[in-house]
Amino acid sequence: MNFNVRIAPVLFGDAGIYTCSLESNTFLTIKLITVKVTAEPPDTVTEGDTVTLSCSVSDVTAPTRLVWINGDGETVGDKTLTGEEKSLSLILHKAERSREKWTCGVFDQDRLRIVAPYYQERSDLHDKVYTVYRSDIDHSELKLICEASAELSKTKWTWKPHFQNQVMEIATTDKSQPIIISGRSYFENRLRTTQEILNVSNFNLRIVPVQFEDAGDYTCSLGSHQYVTIELITVRVTAEPPDAVTEGDNVTLTCSVSEVSESMRLVWINSDGETVDEKIFMEWKNEGDSLQLIIPTDDKIRRKWTCVLFHQSRPKIFIPYYLQVKNDFTSERIILVITRSLVLLIFMILTVVFCRRMYEISALVWIAQLSEMNKQLQLAANNYCQAIQNSKSMKEGL
Rank of each mutant, 00 (worst) to 15 (best):
N2E: 15
V10A: 03
V10T: 04
A15T: 03
G16L: 00
Y18H: 03
S24V: 15
S24H: 15
N25M: 14
F27Q: 14
L28C: 15
I30S: 12
T38S: 05
T50Y: 15
T52D: 08
S54P: 10
V57Q: 00
A62W: 11
P63N: 08
W68L: 01
I69G: 04
G71N: 04
G77Y: 02
G83W: 04
E84I: 05
E84D: 08
R97V: 14
S98Q: 08
W102Q: 04
T103M: 13
F107M: 06
D108L: 15
L112Q: 03
I114A: 12
V115W: 11
R122V: 07
Y133L: 05
K143Y: 15
E147P: 08
E151N: 14
L152D: 12
W157V: 02
W159T: 03
K160D: 06
V167P: 01
I170A: 02
T173C: 04
R190H: 02
L191T: 00
R192Y: 06
N199A: 08
N202E: 11
N204F: 03
N204D: 04
L205S: 02
I207N: 01
D214V: 00
G216P: 05
S224Y: 08
V228M: 03
V228Y: 02
E231C: 09
R236I: 10
V237W: 06
A239V: 01
P241G: 01
A244C: 09
V245R: 01
V251K: 02
E259S: 11
R265S: 07
W268Y: 03
S271W: 03
T275R: 06
G288C: 04
G288W: 00
I294T: 15
I294G: 08
I295R: 07
H311Y: 11
Q312A: 14
V325R: 01
E332W: 11
L336I: 13
F347K: 10
I349P: 03
V353G: 07
I361Y: 02
A368Y: 13
Y384S: 11
K395A: 15
